[in-house]
Design a binder for these strands. Structure first.
Lengths: 339, 339
DNA sequence: CTGTTAGCGCATTCAT
DNA sequence: ATGAATGCGCTAACAG
């Protein structure tokens, strides 16, 4: 029948069936210590006959660790977060660690609940993409005080948690180099379409844009989604824009932007050049393909794995902050650098 | 410091600090039974002072339930699965249940591992989007034999697990009605761009297409991703297609298809009409917006919630199979029905 | 209303 | 190499 009760078969049952002690069953199944081959096979067949499956809750309570790593994402809908989740899953599969993912649903309250849940379930480490640059501090600090905690992609300053992410300002520098090598910025209008600086990534990308492009360019801020990109396009068109170079804070924003611009009859890159950020898979199937600043997801997940395997402790006891350099990926949505 | 050891504060510590028994601490914190207000406040301040946080592993071991529901997705990159995960997260937040998500990474082996992990951790229920229509049977059966198990979106025949999904054949019927009301099918070439029938959804959508459109239309089968859509477009163009009505098995396929067709200079819907399936958010920001068969995600997650809350048992003990009718959402990628 | 006690399932001592 | 005994942290019986 569907949904039978939890497996009632316990180690004691297997031990009885095999005529050995529970200790021998435990040692046989975990293979952590040598066991007489004869008893070993008796235990294995007994376990098989009874359909025994280890109760991981009992094991976790006893060992104090769960062979589990938690990941808290703000939201499943953002494809960049999904990509990180997928890569992390793979990274931890090899060492025999299960990655469990929890969505904060863009809410501080839910984020805190996720921390409580994972900490209370004795995860070996906790990876968090914080919802808010400032207000996630409570969640992050709580997490960091009880378990190896790594902030991913975004960070909350002043917490004791590790951090892995890209250098967003450097990413904007790459964009500036690319754009300025092909466009006369003095003649060509440009604008930044970003997100409200409530997350460190949004904040740093905005800062980076200002630093490299100067303070005179128009700036439109919304949220990290395609709908905002569409709205921004509508606004630009209403303001009389008919051409320009649009630097965005995320691929999803760029996608919405391009879609609306094209629907209004403009050409990309003919009228507008558009540049994204993140490097999600979608950039290759936009038309035109999107020029973007790619976050090296493999290097990021690798860094996290190493941090977790070292027990989350740096040599000097200080939290590690690993910033990886992103790379420009040329698409057809912006002019190639003229040689 | 980053990654301090697990919180060593236990109920016994709080009880000692407050001068009460652990039972009183438990009762106060869980609020399950009345406690003298005086003791109650002493317990609460003691817990606060010591920074006590309940160990959910101990609670789970004791109670046999974890207030947790597991979700196993084949993969995080498919936006429809992400959407389901997000909606399920919300659906279970209210009843105080944490949804934990595990990616099978499109592998049967990993899928089975996910089942073992969740079952071993005493989830109250397990929701699975099976990787394979046939070969996931081992995972699903194992799950169903130990915990309330619900197959979502796809199903493995012959298992004892519940199932929630849409009627895919009916979806294809809606597509046929829409297309035939506006296009003379006898004159207008049509084709199906689907996925290899290794999942029930791919299978049923293919069957549905054949049933309603007949067996004479060309059929191209690949996988549920945009890259396949692009490749299919390339193939159609190479075969000399210059116009037609293209019915797909998924929005992501349709997106890749449109992108490549447009890049090759064709017009949608001028030359090609394209129709998707699933109803992910992206359909609204494609240009043109995509006509699609929308899966009513809210109704699906609601059905799951009800199933879980009823303890995963149907009235008659038989597994429940809930098929929900999808709905056609008109976009600009296909002709509107002529009145 | 509160305290004492027991035991969930397991891995690990400590003895043999 | 094996078995007996212990206790991880918690809640539910039971007694008071």
């Amino acid at each position: 029948m569907a949904g039978a009760g939890p497996n009632p078969v316990t180690m004691a049952d297997v031990a009885r069936q095999a005529g050995v002690s529970t200790a021998t069953v435990s040692r046989t199944l975990s293979g952590i210590r040598a066991v007489d081959p004869d008893l070993q096979s008796r235990v294995l067949t007994a376990a098989d006959v009874l359909g025994y499956r280890v109760n991981l809750v009992g094991r976790t309570l006893r060992q104090g660790r769960s062979s589990t790593v938690g990941l808290i994402v703000p939201d499943f809908e953002n494809p960049f977060f999904s990509s990180l989740a997928q890569h992390l899953t793979k990274a931890f599969a090899a060492p025999g660690i299960d990655l469990l993912v929890f969505s904060a649903d863009s809410s501080l309250e839910r984020e805190l609940r996720g921390v409580h849940s994972f900490v209370g379930r004795q995860v070996d480490a906790l990876v968090v993409i914080p919802v808010h640059e400032v207000e996630s501090a409570a969640s992050i600090s709580l997490a960091a005080s009880s378990v190896a905690t790594i902030q991913l992609d975004r960070q909350v300053p002043g917490t004791e948690a590790h951090s892995v992410g890209v250098s967003n300002r450097h990413g904007m520098r790459l964009v500036h180099e690319h754009v300025s090598s092909a466009v006369d910025l003095a003649r060509q209008p440009g604008a930044f379409v970003g997100a409200m600086p409530t997350s460190s990534s949004a904040h740093e990308r905005l800062d980076g844009f200002r630093k490299w492009f100067g303070d005179d360019e128009p700036i439109l801020l919304g949220s990290f989604d395609a709908t905002w990109g569409q709205e921004a396009a509508t606004r630009l068109i209403a303001d009389g824009w008919t051409s320009g170079t649009l630097v965005t804070a995320a691929d999803v924003i760029a996608t919405g932007l391009m879609s609306r611009l094209q629907a209004a009859g403009f050409r990309v890159p003919g009228d507008f050049r558009v540049i994204g950020f993140d490097g999600i898979g979608m950039v290759r199937l936009a038309s035109p393909t999107l020029t973007t600043v790619r976050q090296p997801v493999e290097a990021m997940t690798q860094a996290i794995r190493e941090l977790v395997e070292s027990g989350g402790r740096a040599a000097n006891g200080e939290p590690v902050s690993k910033r990886i350099k992103p790379e420009l990926v040329l698409g057809a949505s912006s002019p190639a650098a003229t040689v």
